[in-house]
Design a protein around this nucleic acid. Structure first.
Lengths: 225, 225
DNA sequence: GTCTATATCCAGATAGAC
DNA sequence: GTCTATCTGGATATAGAC
């Protein structure tokens, strides 16, 4: 991923990606985009048709990036269970939420078929890709044969997307981690693989047992997914 | 729930609840609230301190209503599995999303501790309530003893919240239904209970098997949850 | 309690010079 | 390609009459 000096139009796209992630479509003004990109109004309206056009370019870019990041987990080494665990446990900027899923709450994005399409395609691709992995694991005897791959895939994606919601509500990553550990346990793909295996108290009242990752949060501005 | 003629301040609160659900905090203007409530500017600023004050009243109201609606499922008849299934399958305005979870994507809500608190409390309550039900089912032998109640509860809430995201992205309730059926299958609480048991094709590429409810969507403006 | 000014600033964009 | 006006309207109030 080239990240040397960027052209004005690239900077405008990148700034819009950031702002759409942070504040959504309705909450993002042309002025804010221009300021963050270090560009004037003229530049923005020279390169793009207006806010919707620029948002479309930004959303497409974000969707591409999220796919690439997810595919890195999917096509990694190991069996279906390993790759599935790798995907749900992969490093994420949890408190920022998912830059694609977030757009789903934007009425103007949902109302505009062009803006919605990349969002829909990305999430549909994700479900299909996960369904294939569940199917593979089922064939290999890693998962119970009774699992419906498409439904299970939807549950996996939903758990991740909903995990962001719980984390942002709580102001903590703990509920995200709890949701993901609960999912892995239900799938029979248990165990914390990466570092920091010391279990701490969960973020919710009731019996303990979840093993939240307690690592740092505000990391790189990469796609979450 | 009394729903006769409402005072101006009640109409302002109700209108704000609707608009926060549809468009979020940043996307909701005082003017839009006033128009929907049939009230003038003066009335709004007489009864409330401004947009944040009115939003706080509306968010608290929505949180109360969602709790009441969820509690109706939780305290209903049947075993833990029945009540859990009743909760996740209960009628929802899926394409509208969750009026509480939605606020989580609003930067101004998350940044303001007063506005965030009702959101956090509601979702935390929901997890605790579900954890107790999972725990109960575990004791009764309905669920595997190895399940962690808190983590499983987080997974359940996350699946529902993420199901809304998938449904809105797809412009269809099918992925929500698929996610929920996948969850129930993982929990070993199978079967479509209510009407319309004829399974249709799922909304995702890959092997079929999910049984989406295909009923009407735009129903009453009640809390989803 | 409700209404109609009035005020300031920002959103979103166009025009045209450089 | 980029910049600085300039424009119309909405966001978010305050003031004060009724």
């Amino acid at each position: 991923m080239y990240s040397g000096p960027m052209s004005t139009s690239e900077r405008l796209i990148a700034s819009t990606q950031d702002l759409l992630w942070e504040r959504g479509y309705v909450g993002t003004s042309p002025k804010a985009i221009q300021e963050r990109a270090g560009a004037g109004q003229g530049s923005m309206y020279h390169h793009f048709s207006g806010k919707p056009g620029l948002a479309l370019a930004a959303i497409r870019r974000t969707a591409e990036q999220m796919r690439a990041a997810a595919e890195a987990s999917f096509s990694g080494p190991g069996g279906a269970g390993d790759r599935l665990r790798g995907y749900v446990l992969r490093e994420r900027d949890v408190l920022r939420g998912c830059p694609v899923g977030r757009l789903t709450m934007d009425p103007e994005v949902i109302a505009d078929p062009e803006l919605r399409r990349p969002v829909e395609e990305t999430l549909t691709w994700l479900r299909a890709r996960l369904a294939a992995i569940v199917e593979e694991g089922r064939r290999d005897g890693e998962f119970p044969a009774r699992l419906d791959p498409a439904a299970t895939a939807a549950t996996i994606v939903a758990t991740v997307q909903g995990g962001y919601v719980l984390a942002r509500a709580a102001g903590s990553t703990a509920p995200f981690d709890a949701a993901v550990q609960g999912l892995l346990a239900l799938l029979g793909v248990d165990g914390v693989p990466e570092p920091d295996p010391a279990p701490g108290p969960g973020g919710v009242p009731g019996p303990p047992g979840a093993a939240p990752r307690t690592g740092p949060e505000s990391g790189p501005a990469e796609a979450a997914g």
